[in-house]
Computed example of a mutant assay.
Amino acid sequence: MNIKKMVTNTIVAALYVALTGVFSFMSFGAIQFRVSEMLNHLVFYNKNYKYGVLLGVFIANLFFSTLGPWDLIFGFGQTLISFLILERLFKPEDSETKGMMKTTLVFCLTMVFVAAELYLVLKLPFIFSFVTAAFGEAVVLIVSMPLMKYLNKLIGFAGKMA
Score class of each variant (00 low, 15 high):
Phe74Lys: 04
Val12Glu: 06
Lys50Cys: 12
Tyr16Ala: 03
Ile31Glu: 14
Arg34Trp: 12
Gly136Asp: 04
Tyr16Ser: 02
Glu37Asp: 14
Tyr119Lys: 14
Glu37Tyr: 06
Ile127Trp: 14
Lys50Trp: 04
Lys153Ile: 10
Leu19Lys: 04
Phe58Tyr: 13
Phe128Arg: 09
Glu96Pro: 01
Phe23Asp: 02
Gly159Gln: 08
Phe83Arg: 07
Phe44Met: 03
Lys123Pro: 03
Lys91Ala: 00
Ser95Glu: 07
Phe44Ser: 06
Leu62Gly: 00
Thr20Trp: 04
Lys5Leu: 08
Ser144Lys: 07
Tyr150Leu: 13
Phe126Gly: 13
Tyr150Val: 00
Met6Ile: 14
Met6Ala: 14
Phe83Trp: 09
Leu86Arg: 00
Asn152Ser: 08
Tyr150Lys: 15
Met1Val: 11
Met161Ala: 01
Lys50Asn: 06
Ser27Gln: 03
Ala18Ser: 15
Phe58Gly: 08
Leu84Asp: 05
Arg88Trp: 01
Gly52Ile: 06
Ser95Ile: 11
Gly68Phe: 14
Val131Trp: 04
Ala60Lys: 01
His41Thr: 10
Gly156His: 09
Asp94Lys: 07
Thr20Asn: 03
Ile155Met: 08
Gly136Pro: 02
Val140Thr: 00
Leu80His: 05
Gly99Thr: 00
Phe126Lys: 11
Leu15Phe: 15
Met26Leu: 14
Lys123Met: 11
Glu93Pro: 00
Lys47Ser: 13
Phe25Ser: 15
Thr79Asp: 04
Val140Arg: 05
Ser129Gln: 12
Ala60Cys: 12
Lys98Cys: 02
Ala138Gly: 15
Ala30Cys: 09
